[in-house]
């Protein structure tokens, strides 16, 4: 019998398409979380009154930062989820090896991350519509996004979400290496906060946050984030490439 020859590319492509179809529930979890965040954003809109000689104006500030924040968090969780036992075993039911499994996971996370980023950015426009029609705003300061704003915004959110996915994936890989990381990672995070508090210094975690979120040069930001993503996935792959399945 002649053997089937399969290239890595073909295997990754098949697995990616399979994952897109099989993990449709990832989108519903995204949508539910974003809707929730959207409701919080809307409920939390800052509202105060301005009175001048003639008019009493109500002023609302709208922000979709919670939506973006929750999307990033969702990326982290999804990154961890694709390495839980059920998902990995499912991978190996059909044709795969550990490299194609990770590559197709990366592609899958990129695809859902992009969807998350686009939806988060769209919510920005939606909230303006809500302002117009629900809050009956008379004047909208600032204009709805231009296409350029939208693409740039989406790209930045996409990078943040992807970074979260990659970090989540790395955490997932560590947990696969040893279950102790389930406790160790939260313990280290909290421990580091407490240590910094005791030392009365600016917490390390905030420094990490600033490292990524307070970068004003777009180019350097992109390089920082991409490099971190690649590092996380590479480290994960090196761990996962030695792992046994269903042992």
């Amino acid at each position: 019998m002649s053997l089937a020859e399969i290239s890595l590319g073909a295997a990754v492509k098949r697995q990616f398409l399979f994952k897109m179809k099989a993990n449709i529930d990832v989108y519903s979890s995204l949508m539910i979380m974003q809707l929730l965040a959207f409701a919080i954003s809307y409920g939390d809109r800052i509202r105060y009154a301005v009175r001048d000689e003639i008019f009493l104006s109500k002023v609302y500030y709208y922000s979709v930062d919670p939506v973006i924040g929750i999307t990033i968090f969702w990326g982290l969780v999804t990154g961890i989820t694709v390495l839980t036992k059920g998902y990995t075993d499912t991978d190996f039911t059909f044709v795969t090896n550990r490299l194609s499994s990770t590559l197709s996971n990366i592609l899958f996370l990129a695809a859902v991350g992009l969807a998350g980023a686009i939806m988060a950015m769209l919510s920005k426009n939606v909230i303006l519509l809500v302002a117009l029609f629900v809050d009956k705003a008379d004047v909208l300061y600032g204009s709805p996004m231009t296409a350029g704003d939208f693409f740039l915004g989406t790209a930045v959110v996409f990078l943040y979400v992807s970074l979260a996915c990659a970090i989540g994936y790395f955490i997932g890989a560590l947990v696969k290496l040893n279950k102790i990381f389930v406790f160790l990672i939260p313990a280290l995070l909290i421990g580091s906060l407490m240590f910094d508090a005791a030392q009365d210094q600016w917490p390390l975690l905030f420094k990490v946050y600033e490292f990524y979120f307070h970068e004003f040069s777009l180019a350097i930001f992109v390089v920082k984030v991409l490099a971190s993503i690649i590092l996380c996935y590479l480290a994960s792959f090196l761990i996962l490439n030695r792992m046994e399945i269903r042992s």
């Binding site: 053997l3 295997a11 993990n23 059920g86 075993d89 499912t90 044709v95 550990r98």
Partner: peptide, 23 residues
């Protein structure tokens, strides 16, 4: 171990086979 050729040309059937729950 980690051979795509082996994976593409073999199948392992037992009662623990795992499938995506959504399908």
């Amino acid at each position: 171990f980690n051979s795509l050729k082996v994976s593409a040309n073999s199948i392992f059937v037992d009662d623990q086979m795992s499938y995506p729950p959504a399908l």
